[in-house]
């Protein structure tokens, strides 16, 4: 060893990560690398390209609607830019798309398509629901519902359902990208009218291999589900849903599709806070 002070492993790692995620290729080797010149630049390019290519592949699977909307080339450029700007947090690419919707929202270059971020949120929700745990609703829960007081009970939604509201027709757009012959005039109309939609996404209970379902929620159902999400008691939730809401029909479908996990007791108002 020569007399120069040694570099700690921690510092070497920080410098290499900086070089990989920086926008510019440092001309001079850093991180105490042995390589220099072209060989340094090629080695660094191998790491820069590999991480990004893996992430782009994963993002294609997680955001199929955004991929179809932007086309392969622009989507790839978006992914590369995202990869560099918002590096992953976890060592599992199943989570790499977590921050993409929010990132899309920050991009002036995509501002002409203001629904893209919400379409990305819907893609991400579908991706998440495709691996959601199954519902745990039991016959005991149903019996509690038959015997109990609606003012002291709350319905707990299963982790396999998700409500997503948007100022844009996200479900119409989602469907159009999955149909053989979509009605593009209707899609265009929905966009021009800025039709707000709330998506209801769930993982079908009876078939683990089935893709998550995506539907629109009508206004009454949306108020109902929002109340359940907030942990409200059954009677308050029914009040906010209003007269138009058909509880019996909803309950039957909820049990068949696996939307519910449990009927929980809500004796004191403070209990509602435990529903996190």
């Amino acid at each position: 060893m020569n007399g120069e002070p040694r570099m700690s492993e921690a510092r070497r790692q920080r410098e290499l990560i900086d070089a990989i995620f920086s926008t510019r290729t440092p001309d001079a080797p850093c991180a105490g690398a042995r390589q220099s010149g072209t060989r340094w630049r090629t080695g660094l390019a191998a790491y820069r390209g590999n991480g990004r290519a893996h992430a782009c592949n994963a993002l294609q699977v997680q955001f199929p609607t955004i991929l179809a909307m932007l086309g392969a080339e622009t989507f790839d450029a978006l992914c590369s830019s995202y990869w560099r700007t918002c590096p992953p947090r976890r060592g599992d690419l199943a989570w790499v798309g977590e921050a993409l919707p929010a990132y899309i929202e920050t991009l002036d270059t995509l501002a002409e398509w203001p629904w893209l971020a919400d379409c990305a949120r819907l893609d991400w929700t579908v991706w998440q629901m495709s691996g959601a745990p199954p519902a745990t609703f039991s016959e005991g829960d149903l019996r509690r519902l038959a015997d109990g007081d609606p003012a002291a009970l709350a319905l707990r939604l299963s982790p396999g359902v998700r409500r997503l509201s948007s100022a844009w027709p996200i479900v119409t757009l989602y469907d159009a990208h999955r149909q053989a012959h979509p009605d593009w005039a209707a899609v265009t109309r929905a966009i021009a009218q800025k039709r707000a939609q709330t998506a209801w996404v769930w993982r079908p209970r009876e078939n683990l291999a089935a893709a998550p379902a995506v539907e629109t929620l009508d206004a009454a159902s949306e108020r109902w589900v929002a109340a359940l999400d907030a942990g409200q008691t059954l009677d308050l939730a029914l009040d906010s849903a209003g007269e138009a809401f058909d509880f019996a029909a909803w309950l039957e479908q909820a049990i068949r599709q696996g939307w519910l996990d449990a009927v929980a007791d809500r004796h004191a108002p403070s209990d509602a806070m435990d529903n996190a």
């Binding site: 790692q13 290499l16 990560i17 990989i20 995620f21 790491y47 590999n50 991480g51 893996h54 992430a55 590096p87 992953p88 947090r89 976890r90 060592g91 690419l93 790499v96």
Partner: peptide, 9 residues
Amino acid sequence: GIIHANDLL
């Protein structure tokens, strides 16, 4: 904070 490069560095 801490990022993960999703690579074998």
